[in-house]
Amino acid sequence: MAKKQNTNERAARAAAALAAQQKAEKRRNIITAVVVGLVVVLIAGGVFVYLLGKGNQGDIAAAGAGEGEYGVTIGDADAPHEVVVYEDFLCPYCGQLEAASRDDFTEAANAGQVQIEYRPFNLLSGISDYSERATSAFAVVLTEEGATVAKKFHDILYENQPSESAEEFPDNQQLLDWAVEAGADEATVSDGILDQTMTDWVEEATTAATDAGVSGTPTVLLDGEQVSGTADQIVQTVLDTVQE
């Protein structure tokens, strides 16, 4: 009788010890799982933040205004400030920025306060071939007629910017008409614009922009630092700095 009781007690004690051990192991498993999960999140998050930081804002390694190979520059190279505007002829927000900034930027450039380079490239190739055609036409005008006419053509393109969701986009004949309106000699630029002879230039400009870290348009750099905000805020930030 006493012996049996003894055995029962031992069995109960063993069972309790086993239960305690199981509980401890379960706890340890949960802690291990949490640690593994944290390490996973840390690695994935760390890579994400690293790549985003390396690839995005504040780290755009673009050539300074007047030094790009694929843009049109206004203002004096000796101006105390410089602005680079990466843009796409189809991007609606670029159109807004152009409308909000043109007069003030031109005035500041003419006053010797700032040198500004506009670098159009083909960001929105997924929407239509308009960006490519317009940028190619811009390159033809820039190469054949020089910066003044190219800037004027650039302005006209934005004043007549089609909607991103347009059913039909301006054709090459229309681009040629605008180039002539900007002051280009029709005979000189006609073949280039109608046959889109500068698409290689467009591709190189696009690669140069994305290589520099530009991943959206418009991207505005003021003395090398990216300026963000609404079109009006960007204009205000630039003017506040250059008119100091």
Partner: peptide, 30 residues
């Protein structure tokens, strides 16, 4: 070369430009 990764995502011409840089940076970590 994170730019390359972003450009690779963009080249598929599927996603809107707003999410392309984010996905380009997110994929390598995942």
């Amino acid at each position: 070369d994170p730019q390359q990764s972003v450009r690779a995502v963009r080249a598929y011409e599927v996603l809107p430009e707003a999410v392309v840089p984010t996905l380009g940076a997110l994929l390598p970590g995942i």
